[in-house]
Design a protein around this nucleic acid. Sequence first.
DNA 1: TAGATTGTTAATCGATTAACAATC
DNA 2: TAGATTGTTAATCGATTAACAATC
Lengths: 218, 218
Amino acid sequence: MLEEQKISISVVKRLPRYYRFLEELKNNGINRISSKELSARMGLTASQIRQDFNCFGGFGQQGYGYNVEKLCDEIGEILGLSAKHKTILLGAGNLGRAVANHVFSESKGFTLIGIFDRKESLTGQLIKGIPVRHIDGLYDFCHDNSPTVAIICLPPDATRELCPELIKLGITAIWNFSSYDVSLHCPNIPVENVHIGDSLMTICYKIKEYNEKGKDGE
Amino acid sequence: MLEEQKISISVVKRLPRYYRFLEELKNNGINRISSKELSARMGLTASQIRQDFNCFGGFGQQGYGYNVEKLCDEIGEILGLSAKHKTILLGAGNLGRAVANHVFSESKGFTLIGIFDRKESLTGQLIKGIPVRHIDGLYDFCHDNSPTVAIICLPPDATRELCPELIKLGITAIWNFSSYDVSLHCPNIPVENVHIGDSLMTICYKIKEYNEKGKDGE
DNA sequence: TAGATTGTTAATCGATTAACAATC
DNA sequence: TAGATTGTTAATCGATTAACAATC
């Protein structure tokens, strides 16, 4: 078992969803599931589920299926959810607050240690017990606390300006909620985008398509 | 030109990004671009760009390239951004507010006409000039105003309970920010998910992978 | 006309599905 | 043992890339 072909991004993108479903099953006291039943619940093929799980080695047992708790824990481990990456949040507007709550309350893999905003009026305000700091203090804070992950909830222009600074300050991963394409200008580090605007346009397209033909027949 | 093979979801998902880049070029006064240059800016292959654009008919001109403004407008039209879908927002927490600002300030394709929350304390509060209503008024509001799109910024349990109601009330598209898998239980209508939690786990995986091998070599 | 760049077909690559032998 | 279900290989399907003729 030394070592593995690269896991494709298609598989990786499905892992969080598996994790969610398995956690739910676990919470409902279900401790065994077959690929067939899981496929029915999730709207996937059983074949795909077995292929996906097998990228990481045999989690199941022939004739029996998968142990829910073990599988859930394994996937959590593969995702790296037991880590505690020191994380800072840039931008304490509504979106920043929403994300902060998310990270804080779930805290899967990340520990929020600092929040920054340019707006003087927000300075000192507490978000889940963490004070908002003025952006001018970013340099000192990073030198003192060495965060490695940045969550960006800023307008695109502010993001463009800030990104190179973040890299210089030791940030090695960016969770980007701005519409600016961070990955193009911070190559080689992990970036994950949540492009709300793109999602909006995508559903707009789907609605149009649905109205045109989806409704009646094909 | 009557009519077209179905556009694959892979292509559709790229359209918003094309739109963003073309809008930017347009705003910068650039009125002509070749697939080669656009590919360099966007980090795609020129081949893919030409394939994508050609799904919708010939927008370019041999030997010249594409007219930025025309192309941008065409893609906006394909996405259906000139529509004004009557939209309601369920959930006026931080995430709901953030999304409301997004929809309101851009208003591409959607018009926000109502905001609902279960919390009494929020009732009457204005978000971008629209009052938050108590969820109990949802039925009457929908009968009077006939919204067709719902944005869901609720916890998963609330989402599960509410979804069937929304369908009954005439909602035919759901933009879902909750971790509940709406599409499994509202089949056949357009659904677009923004699963922030899944995105969090995905970047967690990417960081782990990067730390393990990404850094040195490979 | 010569140069540039598209539109489009063909080749490659990767992801999903189907099938079935291994095995619990 | 017989039945169930995995792990895994092979077949199919779709998406991306490469190539080039058409044409501005």
